[in-house]
Simulated scan of single mutants.
Amino acid sequence: MTSTTSVRPAPTALTFRQKLNRFDYKFSPYLYIAPFFILFALIGLFPIIYTFNVSLYDWHLLKGQGDFVGLENYVSVLTDPFFWNAFRNTISIFLLSTIPQLVVATGIAALLDQTLRGRTFWRMSILLPYIVAPVAVAVIFLQIFNQYHGPIAGLLELFGLDPVRWAFDVFPSHVAIATMVNWRWTGYNALILLAAMQAIPRDVYESAALDGANKVRRFWSITIPMIRPTLIFVVITATIGGLQIFTEPKLFDGRTNGGSDRQFQTIVLYLYELAFPRRDFGRASATAWILFLIIILAGLLNFAISRAIRTADTKPTKLPRVKAPVPATVPDTRKRG
């Protein structure tokens, strides 16, 4: 018997066009995303690293780099009572603004998700506060929260109540600043949540309605679980913005950096005061890095809570064991012979 051996054809060399197509297939995705990472490295990553380098030196705004002090700037900031006052003010304003803002934004999004006349008009109108300049917002609310001549002061006088020192007392100033933040950002977050609600299939609601679920039940059992990823995104972005708040408290009293007694000075205003009036760039950079770490911890906490909630929802529920009923004995009614 004769055995036949198969001879493989010699591989042909790729043409230049084929090599170019292979290169384009493998490396073009990296070229498409490269501009973002290059831009982020230039205006994001490099300033962060450079700020950390500045925080390790006794750095003056005009004199420049001084002696190497290591972590002394961090210790100086963390032992400064003004920093902890700014930290408490930031947390207070953050809680007064973020929590009501998210609750109201979710409610507005749920209302706009219904069948309404002129839905486009209402959806666009809630975005108007966001496009107003922050300076104009500050001017409007400074008139509203005027201690003696504002509409709130007139309402209090009508009921015989004393005027509120909005710009001088701690809690009223926090409420006034949080109101400015809520007015400007609630509509923006509501549109993001509305977009997530619009992506929910309508037949899910119809099936729930046929099963007898009312609107409140459908909202808590269908809407909230299905928009949870978007809700987590809104919570994280609102947390970052709330901890970095600067514009509203700065414009609320432009003559000072957080009030005459620092009653509404935030961490970023404290950083601003260190950097420019005091010209201490070393401590200001250390404050920036401390704030950066606080924001990271807050983001990780939000992620852990959302992951725990998601894990709890996906756990199968154990149904109680039901014992099988014991069959009743039927008496034998047959006649025995």
Rank of each mutant, 00 (worst) to 15 (best):
K318T: 13
R22T: 10
E157G: 14
K315L: 14
K26S: 11
R262I: 04
A199P: 02
F94C: 08
T333Q: 10
G241V: 05
G64N: 10
G337D: 13
T120Y: 05
P327C: 03
T311A: 12
L31S: 09
A308L: 15
D261R: 09
R17E: 15
P35N: 05
G241P: 06
L193R: 02
S97V: 07
K63F: 13
S28R: 14
G160I: 09
T12E: 13
Y205G: 07
A298W: 04
F121H: 02
R255L: 11
F219P: 01
Y74P: 03
F27A: 10
G299N: 13
T287W: 03
I99A: 01
Y272E: 03
P163F: 11
L158V: 05
T98K: 09
A238D: 08
T115A: 14
R88D: 11
E157K: 14
D280T: 00
F46H: 12
I43N: 12
A34D: 09
N89M: 02
L210V: 15
E273D: 10
A308D: 10
F27Y: 15
L71H: 01
I152G: 04
T239Q: 03
L62Q: 15
L191K: 01
T317G: 10
L158F: 14
T12F: 01
I227T: 03
N73L: 00
A195S: 14
A312T: 10
Q147T: 15
H149Q: 13
Y50W: 14
I140K: 05
V330F: 08
F27P: 03
L243Y: 02
G212K: 02
F94N: 07
